[in-house]
């Protein structure tokens, strides 16, 4: 019994969780205030909009991990199912790693890369 429980904790649970990973996209527009952006996040899972999600939106710089502590913004439901709105208050222009910490309906952390300029954000190409 204990062995079965251990198996579930260490091996089976990760496989189940991996099969349900959500996807995200971001559109941001500069507000006019320095480094502040209004963003729309589109969440989907298995090709369908992921509605009713609760999440915090945080940011970090890839070349300076842990050194920037941008206050996470709580996302609010947007106009369409699967869309959410959040205001990001960054510290500077440049490439930022956007972290979407989902609390429900699944717990996950989605990491996106965007280049922020004076107008808005564009996905970072490599």
């Amino acid at each position: 019994m204990a062995q079965a429980a251990l198996f579930l904790i260490f091996f089976a649970a990760p496989l189940l969780a991996h099969a349900q990973s959500p996807q995200a996209e971001l559109r941001c527009k500069a507000t006019g205030e320095d480094f502040v952006y209004d963003c729309i996040i589109t969440l989907s899972r298995g090709g369908r909009p992921l509605a009713g999600a609760e999440m915090a939106v945080a940011a970090d710089m890839p070349t300076m991990p842990m050194a920037h502590n941008v206050r996470p913004a709580r996302a609010r439901p947007g106009a369409k199912p699967g869309e959410y709105k959040a205001r990001l208050d960054l510290e500077m222009l440049g490439e930022w790693t956007i972290k979407l910490r989902l609390d429900s309906p699944v717990r996950d952390l989605l990491v996106l890369h965007y280049e922020f300029d004076s107008k808005g954000a564009t996905p970072r190409k490599r």
Partner: peptide
Amino acid sequence: YAHHNTYIEPRNFDIMLGVH
């Protein structure tokens, strides 16, 4: 760090981290 962030990339480990 890797498990806190769920994502890592080579640029996370550049000179800025070492200098800091």
